[in-house]
Design a protein around this nucleic acid. Structure first.
Length: 134
RNA sequence: AGAGAAAAAUGACUUCAUCGCUCCGGUUAAACGGAGAGGAAAGUCCGGGCUGCAUAGGGCACCGCACCGGGUGAAAAGCCCGGGAGCAAAUUUGAAAGAAUUUGUUACAGAUAGGGCCACAGAAACAAACCGCCUUCGGGCAAGGGUGAAAAGGGGGUGUAAGAGACCACCGCAGUCUUUAGCAAUAAAGCUGGCCAGGUAAACCUUGUGGGCAGUAAGACCAUGUAGACCAAGGAUGUUUGAGCAAUCAAAUUGAAGGGCGGCUCGUCCGGUCUUGGAGGGUAGGUCGCAUAGAUAAAUGAUGAGGCUACUGCAAAGUAGAACAGAACCCGGCUUAUGUUUUUUCUCUGAAC
RNA sequence: UGCCCGAUCGUCUAAUGGCAGGACAGCAGAUUUUGAUUCUGCUUGUAUAGGUUCGAAUCCUGUUCGGGCAA
């Protein structure tokens, strides 16, 4: 059980990000959109995540910073939910709400999304991976 | 004393613990140690550094700036300090005109260098004469005339045919004049001018003065390798000169067409094609540029406890840690946004003298 | 992040510093048995705050909003 979230656990490569947005599947809920994707390249790190907030919904930079900090913190404390999964996984959390949220609200939303992803990945073990290598 | 407005200063509240983030040091790897958002980081309105374009050159065009002295700065500027002038308000004084003081404010050169424009109204908008006044009927005059933002100093007297700075006193105005004070802008006094002449330069323009253009996505390096493009050498070509009627031959030259120097021009640099050799851009990205914070889908956060401050409450206690707002090459100025507290100025209300 | 542009009726656009005009749309009326077409009339605007000027959509400055270029 580790609670770290260093540079290696975040997605920073431009190609990985483009791949993720092109091929990922989504788990939607009000005010939060979670994308997940099994990567085919650069698999040395098992679990990687990224966090975004739309500039359209939040004009001021300090609001976007605050929401991204909330998302990062909540993911850091709850990412051990996905520890049982075998393969590597890329994640992207996008906050789609219109108002500045409370910390508790974000915590619950991220936890629910992680549980949902865990459930889906376990129920469909290896049918998805070959098709994505194209 | 209270309330309000403006300006200036202040500005993650502070300490500890736990879990974490970015960079640097350290280590085989850890442990560990150090640093880590703002007064505006914002707007991008001005500059400077830095980088490339030729080493950044001349002229024109274009774009700024404009009272005086000092400081900062390479410099016009900007900013700071002090002064001058104009404008506005208040107070005092005065019969009034005005004067003085205080406060605020000013994108403060030139309108006899030049042309342009001044709608409507009005006789007339810089031109004089429509009505008018006088007349010896040739003419003289600009006092009076509903306009307008603006109509060739003011009101009084002399004077006259009627009038007019035509003349006189006072006030106002102007001055490449003189003296005095001041480094200067300028001011005061005198003298001169009858007052030659509206406004607009934040329209063109003139004078003085400054500016080459682009921007870190600048720019440099590494990786991969087919065509094209690039560099070097050689051949050939071009130009000029000489010989020759001419074809052509010999010598000299790297010039010509064209292109670069992001508007034009001068100036300056490169120079068609083929062969051989070199070099290695994009398709694909990465590193540097890059910092006593320094990332690159972009770090400063979360939780708990104590203190402090504010608010609610008789108290116990509870709530909150604010407003504006998040570095992206660096630095200076300007502008705009802004909670609390403090200071200064002004306005209003109340109380006392 | 850096560098640049622009803002006029509901929409598309004109306008030397001098009464903000046109088209479409909307509303009302006329024509028609009714509707469409057509005709007549009306309504609706210079993004915002200051300044220069006698006078500002226009000139100057600040702000707000929108858009473009550079991988």
């Amino acid at each position: 059980m580790s609670f770290t979230l260093g540079k290696e656990e975040r997605i920073k490569s431009r190609k990985s990000i483009e791949n993720l947005f092109r091929e990922a599947k989504a788990v939607r809920s009000p005010a939060l959109l979670a994308l997940y994707h099994v990567p085919t390249i650069n698999t040395e790190h098992r679990l990687q995540a990224m966090f975004t907030v739309s500039k359209k919904n939040f004009k001021r930079a300090h609001d976007r910073n605050a929401i991204k900090r909330y998302l990062r913190e909540c993911y850091r404390l709850q990412k051990n939910i996905l520890n049982d999964l075998p393969g590597p996984l890329h994640l992207c959390f996008t906050f789609t709400g219109r108002q500045l949220p409370e910390y508790e609200y974000v915590y619950k939303k991220v936890g629910a999304a992680l549980l949902e992803i865990d459930r889906i990945m376990k129920s469909t073990p290896k049918d998805e991976t070959p098709s994505q290598e194209k």
